[in-house]
Amino acid sequence: MLSIKNLHAGLEDKEILTGINLEIKPGEVHAIMGPNGSGKSTLSSVISGNETYKVNKGEITLNGENILDLSPDERAHKGVFLSFQYPIEIPGVTTTNFIKTAINQKRKAQGLGDLPAKDMLKMIREKAAMLEMDRTFLSRSLNEGFSGGEKKRNEIFQMAMLEPKLAILDETDSGLDIDALKIVANGVNKLKTKDNATIIITHYQRLLDYIVPDFVHVLYNGKIIKSGGKELAHELEEKGYDWLK
């Protein structure tokens, strides 16, 4: 589904990703771990098309199609979703209106008309219920004044609404309390099918207890220096990263 080959990317004057290779097949869950500043969020941004970062070399294909020339919204229409490590506050736009716009824009790209208001409402209700989200959040300005955990839950709510093919969860667990972590993880698991894939970026084993990865990768200084099965995450939790250097 997602294939990254020898990806070099970064800022104008600073290369952050220095040759990434990653293959993800439908139905798989991949965890990416690695020390602070190793380039995990940069990798998610580059996959989603953030223009802050320049791709210097390499390729990213989604289902065989090169996506590097696509804008972030076009990539979203193809099924890429990024749950932000730091979700942005957008004052003045309610979560409901935001998600309505997102869904209808996606439908437009697919040549469909707007989702009827009734169906939209029903879907919003169901997904909010699945994530045990208080509905007052939906009528509030997007993320404005939300607590850290509330923002993360809202990210997964958006994911549930958009039903992506490739979801990248960048430290979704940070900021969530133990109960919220379970609810959010359950939500993510419910959204899993044999056709979609998930990348989980995390520092801790905790989340991986709920969403069990098929592969674990260690990103270090902009490169994947080790890959393994789910045991690798346990090993990292115990020993840290030093032994890998």
């Binding site: 972030p72 890429v80 736009v93 935001f98 869904i103």
Partner: peptide, 28 residues
């Protein structure tokens, strides 16, 4: 705000609409 624009775009809202949405919200 470029970060906010990217956030909206990453949800499938094209740049033009994303800008408009933000401007709209600004005046709201």
């Amino acid at each position: 705000d470029e970060k906010a624009l990217f956030y909206l775009q990453s949800r499938g809202i094209p740049k033009k609409e994303a800008k408009a949405l933000m401007l709209f919200a600004f005046g709201n």
